[in-house]
Nucleic acid binder design. Structure first.
Lengths: 206, 206
DNA sequence: GCCATATGTCACTGGCCGGTGAGTAGAAGG
DNA sequence: CCTTCTACTCACCGGCCAGTGACATATGGC
């Protein structure tokens, strides 16, 4: 009946992992407003003292989350990107925009971090934000590859605007389900947004 | 020496106005995270009990702020919009986008409300958010006027995306001064963003 | 002048927060 | 068996919060 390997009651590694997982869950599910030492400890089922001992408090915990965030790219982006060699720059950016939209829609943790960045400026949040930004940049660069944007277009700023519009829409959809008069609830709503997005991208990149 | 009209020590109207002004200042300057009964009372220099009596607590206070928000349009938008009759729809949207950008950059209160919408979903915030959304919609409609968008373009969704990109950029600039790898600090940064924005608008609206 | 009421203040409760020092219990080594 | 170290828990602190009931004082009608 008994497992040969009993659950060790005292296992620092396991406890650290439990705390980190609890922290990510609290942030993703309850939001950054409710995120705190007490909430994480409660969710992890251990005393908050352990968070101070193992992670050095909230800031250390956020750094640990930030480190994990590097894997976001691998989790959400198709690695091989097969057949991409035949795309124009506009096609590439369209694909990137749609991937970013779906990735953000599927990942509440990253959404919360994105919202947190806009709400507060503090050292821990800045670090977390930087980790996300770095992951995002490496992702864009990886996809950009060999293709060159059309001349006369500031691709960096333009792409930032496109990413910005997507992020704002997704964040607004979660809290209010709408933005600037349009609804953002059903799959149909998102399809309309996707096609408008495609038009914008191809409009600017030809 | 004495003024003929002495300052009345007990003046409900004046006190209400002082509380409302204090609330707006707290929200605009300290952010929604620090916004609360105590903070507002402290800033207004009166007891928090008065906030409960005169406004019915935080939610009533937020509704009062929302009502004031209707004047946002009048404050920031040139009323006559002279010479607009000769613009194309693309020119119109370009003008609208740039106006919205500058208005948001200049108004910390509205920025905070916009950020609050993204951070929290609660009844009071929802109402405040609706007031802002309504003001925004009436503004767009007023400017839209007689011009029709090109056929085959979903102008509502497209415009929402443009507004979203601007809002995200402005909110990000305040807390972190950057977004998606671009800097958002100097006037030059914003000029680059403005020209990219123009290109996008004219790209999609021809 | 007198009193009712509107206006404003004070003191308090209960709850949650981040943070800390002291104590407990299991595991490892002799 | 006994010590020693490590993992872990408990109880507490001060501070801030929202909210409330009791109290003080000015104002205006009579």
């Amino acid at each position: 009946m008994n497992e040969t390997v009993d659950k060790p009651l005292r296992d620092r590694q396991a406890t650290e992992a439990r705390i980190l997982a609890a922290a990510k869950r609290v942030l993703a599910e309850d939001g950054f407003k409710l995120f705190g030492i007490n909430a994480v400890a409660r969710r992890a089922g251990c005393d908050k003292q352990l968070i101070y001992r193992y992670f050095g408090g909230l800031s250390g915990l956020l750094e640990a989350i930030g480190s994990d965030l590097g894997s976001w790219v691998k989790d959400h982006i198709p690695e091989d990107s097969g057949g991409m060699f035949l795309l124009t720059y506009g096609d590439l950016m369209e694909r990137l925009a749609l991937l970013f939209l779906d990735a953000l829609l599927a990942d509440p943790l990253v959404r919360q971090i994105a919202a947190w960045e806009l709400a507060e400026e503090s050292e821990p949040v800045r670090k977390l934000s930087e980790a996300r930004s770095k992951a995002l940049a490496s992702w864009i660069e990886r996809m950009g590859g060999s293709l060159q944007p059309p001349k006369g277009v500031d691709a960096t700023v333009t792409n930032a605007l496109i990413i910005a519009s997507i992020q704002q829409m997704v964040l607004a959809s979660v809290t209010s389900g709408r933005f600037a008069g349009i609804s953002l609830k059903t799959g149909k709503d998102w399809d309309k947004l996707r096609s408008a997005l495609k038009r914008i991208v191809h409009g600017v990149y030809g």
